[in-house]
């Protein structure tokens, strides 16, 4: 009797531990919401979503428009995907279909190491290494701009895209490959016309997760994009993303001011955007695994 109670108790403890993850996720959302809501007593939601200027320290009237940083975030994210998707999917296809087992043994840890490099180090190299190169090539002042941020974000998103795309390609049944070869296709045609299409939803999910990564990445864009508060105009101009705005301003702001709460509102938007992207990636991914079953 005693023993049964004890077992039941232990199971309950573990159950609570499992549910804790849900609580953390819900807690993040609710705390962001709680700390963001007071901001909208002063500033309307419409103002927040439509004003093209973010200027909390304005002399007369502070404005809190999300648009400049939202556009900045989208710019660097899309820029990074233009680099990271072809490079990442190409590398994944190389690893799954061309590389010899020995090359694969070496390349896999390389991707893992790349994933492990702290973002602050990548951002640092954006300043000292990539910035001067961009500056020389384009004549911009210090090379700290959206282009720089895009390239660095591509580096950050690559490991996710590579390893998940490779998993997707590896899960394509061998039977498809055999059928294609038996019809007189060579290995390249098989990869291009059978394996990649069959793994398409898995690869798409991988790219979306990579995109979620890029949108939420903070230190690289904070250090390498120049952080000008104006509305972004080109890839060669400085931009200030949602993540950098929070990172810069939360350190300077007084607690419980409208500005403080507004930063939580930005965080909430960030949370919602990445949440939706991850959820979509998840759904696409499950369609992928079910489609192959």
């Amino acid at each position: 009797m005693q023993r049964r109670h004890k077992e039941k108790l232990i199971e309950l403890i573990f159950l609570f531990n499992g549910v804790l993850v849900v609580l953390v996720l819900a807690g993040i959302f609710l705390l962001l919401l709680k700390n963001a809501l007071p901001a909208f007593k002063e500033v309307s939601v419409v103002h927040f979503l439509t004003k093209p200027i973010w200027n909390p320290d304005a002399y007369d009237q502070a404005t809190y428009g999300l648009l400049p940083m939202l556009v900045s975030t989208l710019m660097v994210t899309l820029g990074s995907l233009v680099v990271a998707i072809p490079l990442g999917v190409g590398t994944a296809a190389y690893l799954s279909d061309v590389a010899s087992p020995r090359v694969r043994e070496i390349a896999k840890p390389v991707v893992e190491i790349l994933a492990g490099i702290p973002s602050v180090v990548v951002g640092f190299l954006g300043i000292v290494l990539l910035g001067p190169v961009i500056s020389k090539l384009t004549g911009s002042y210090n090379g700290l701009n959206a282009l720089n941020g895009s390239i660095l974000l591509a580096v950050m998103a690559l490991p996710t895209i590579i390893s998940l795309s490779e998993d997707a390609l590896a899960s394509v049944p061998r039977a498809y490959e055999e059928a294609s070869l038996a019809l007189g296709a060579n290995r390249w045609e098989t990869v291009l016309r059978v394996k990649i299409p069959a793994a398409a939803s898995g690869i798409l999910a991988a790219c979306m997760l990579g995109m979620g990564r890029a949108i939420g990445e903070t230190m690289t864009v904070l250090m390498a994009t120049g952080n000008a508060a104006e509305f972004p105009r080109s890839f060669l101009g400085p931009v200030k993303t949602m993540t950098s705005t929070i990172a810069i301003e939360l350190g300077e702001v007084a607690y419980y001011t409208t500005h403080f709460h507004m930063l939580f509102a930005v965080g909430l938007m960030l949370f919602i955007i990445t949440f939706i992207i991850n959820l979509c990636a998840d759904m696409i991914f499950h369609r992928h695994t079910r489609g192959l079953a």
């Binding site: 498809y176 055999e178 294609s180 019809l183 045609e189 016309r193 069959a198």
Partner: peptide, 29 residues
């Protein structure tokens, strides 16, 4: 393999349309 075709133990159509499956061999050739 273009002269000696093969049909496998388990049916292994590609996850494409019926038409595309049959057209595949022609297209890659």
């Amino acid at each position: 393999r273009r002269k000696v075709g093969m049909v496998f133990q388990k049916p292994n159509p590609f996850p494409k349309s019926i038409f595309e499956n049959v057209a595949y061999g022609l297209e890659v050739n």
